[in-house]
Design a protein around this nucleic acid. Structure first.
Lengths: 203, 203
DNA sequence: GTCTAAATCTTGACATCGTCAAGATGATAT
DNA sequence: ATATCATCTTGACGATGTCAAGATTTAGAC
């Protein structure tokens, strides 16, 4: 974090953090370039010195979100070294917790507000790295007989998809209270992961 | 479908269909109330006679989408009566196909552009009915030993979450081409469903 | 059939938004 | 010190969501 040094200082990062702040306070719909600029104390078109357009800012925010998600995933893995099953469980819970603690950042990361033809290489890179981290856990679990044998990529997509789908449905309010009153989210996630775990290992 | 009968005729439905059309041609970002109005041949604020605001139109479009999804799910169930496993597989594929054939409608249905405090009772109803349909299949599969014994709701959330997560990740471009080149989407979906199916049944 | 009330639609306006162009200001390198 | 470049401001544009006022058409009461 370089200190103030220029007209404003480190505006680019200030804008990203302002964006994250607005996202958490006003949600995805409340995020505008002008509000971000005002929050950072600059004029409404100052962001254009650092971001080509709004999508570009969103890409930067999403990249930041992925970095944090990656770090928490990594922590879950490290603190359960040698225990693949626990890595899977704790990693899954880390993913879900990240989504719940950063709801709107999480939504924007996967909102498809990005993509199209534009590249955003930093975003693509950290996103792929995150997937590889998931694949690492999956691979370790397969070696330990916790997950069934299968091509790693397709099993990793299953695991990630399972997590992502459950938390997405919950965040969008699609899971009725009838269900959420009976089971807490940690139970649901653990249940879902256990479904993927091979029977011999679960026993 | 009542025929033309008034100033415009059945404007409310015309606006919904115009919205779906714009959605499919220009994507979620291209959907504006004014464009919808123009497409329907009315002035820019005519929609306010039928929808309180943009969210309300989106709710109506989403409701329409859920009705179609429900119908296709229902068809998959009916045409495989007596074979729960096939109902699960075909139902899953129907869900994924709906998402792929109506990408942007699907996205807006789950984009959380809705919810908040507002109710949209028609949307909530069809959405719950859809979940119940999934639960029906799950219950039948459990009875047939295709899915493991467990509370129906939590198993249904797993199944739906698995499907929803996989297709969402794919639609948002989060699944790398390395994976998609090796496996087609039907394979991935079938694999994921098979992971949830109990070992005895799969054998 | 006429009249009134309600539903429907149009016109015009406003604030907000993303974006661009022109210019000002501060930093950097020679 | 000066020239060049990055950074930021001001002002403008069209598009958008929404509201207010009024016009038009339909439906219902008599």
């Amino acid at each position: 974090m370089p200190p103030k040094k220029y007209h404003h200082g480190d505006l680019k990062n200030a804008l990203i953090e302002a964006g994250i702040k607005i996202l958490s306070k006003e949600g995805v719909g409340g995020l505008s370039l002008r509000k971000v600029a005002k929050q950072a104390g600059v004029s409404h078109s100052a962001p254009y010195a650092h971001f080509t357009d709004k999508q570009s800012l969103i890409a930067a925010i999403s990249t930041e979100g992925f970095k944090q998600l990656y770090a928490e995933l990594d922590a879950a893995i490290s603190s359960n070294a040698g225990d693949p099953k626990q890595q899977l469980m704790e990693g899954a819970w880390a993913y879900v917790q990240f989504a719940m603690n950063n709801t709107d950042t999480f939504k924007i990361m996967f909102s498809g507000a990005l993509e199209k033809e534009k590249a955003y290489p930093a975003f693509v890179e950290i996103s792929h790295k995150t997937f590889e981290r998931v694949a690492d856990i999956v691979s370790a679990c397969q070696d330990a007989g916790v997950l069934r044998p299968a091509p790693v990529e397709i099993m990793a997509v299953s695991v990630w998809g399972q997590l992502h789908g459950i938390i997405s449905l919950i965040l969008e309010g699609q899971v009725s209270h009838v269900v959420l009153d009976r089971f807490n989210i940690q139970e649901i996630v653990a249940f879902a992961m256990n479904q993927l775990i091979s029977d011999e290992s679960a026993a």
